[in-house]
Computed example of a mutant assay.
Amino acid sequence: MAMNYARSIRYILTTKEAVRVACQRTFATGKAKKGSKGGGAADAPKASTLSKEVKSSTVVGANILKEGTDPKILLDSDYPDRLWHLLDKRPALSELRRNNIETLAYDNLKRFVKLDNRARIKENNSVKAKN
């Protein structure tokens, strides 16, 4: 009986150690140069080899195709108008609740319904979690 118990403990300990070793995060290390103490000029970012003209006329790094090239930057008039309003501040739910619902624009009304539903669901979930 005691022998079986000792075997099971040994098995549990070895599996815990195996999991610990398997889940450890390791980092790759390169070969260090002789006499270097790490860090320093070797780790500094390298200067870009692209000219300023190329950087200002193309979107560098936007190419996802193997044989493709980076897209050119166009004039502002060549892009759709909706693009320039993507980062505009949108009203919060509290601000939308203060306004009259019947006078809201369609986009703001859609946003109000979505945010109000989300708030109601969160409130119902918190009430259910307390019970």
Rank of each mutant, 00 (worst) to 15 (best):
E102M: 01
N124K: 13
L50I: 05
P71G: 09
D43F: 13
A44S: 13
S56A: 12
V60W: 14
L109W: 01
N63Q: 13
C23G: 14
N108G: 01
V21P: 05
K89C: 01
D116V: 02
D76G: 08
E95T: 09
L75Q: 14
L93W: 05
I64F: 14
E102W: 05
R25N: 11
L109P: 00
V21D: 11
T49G: 12
K55D: 04
Y106L: 09
T26I: 11
D81Q: 07
K16V: 09
V54D: 02
K46G: 15
A44L: 15
A28K: 13
A119L: 12
H85K: 10
I9Y: 05
M3A: 11
S48G: 12
D70H: 07
E53M: 00
S126Y: 07
G61W: 07
G30T: 07
A2M: 05
A41P: 03
N100W: 02
K128N: 05
A92H: 01
G35I: 10
T49Y: 11
Y11T: 04
R120M: 12
K114M: 13
R20K: 14
N100R: 06
K37P: 00
V113C: 07
L109I: 02
I9H: 04
I121K: 10
E67N: 12
A2T: 06
N131G: 15
Y11P: 02
R20C: 08
N125Y: 02
A62R: 01
K33H: 10
T29M: 13
G68Q: 04
E17K: 14
G40P: 01
A2C: 08
L50G: 03
K55A: 04
L13M: 09
A32M: 11
V19I: 13
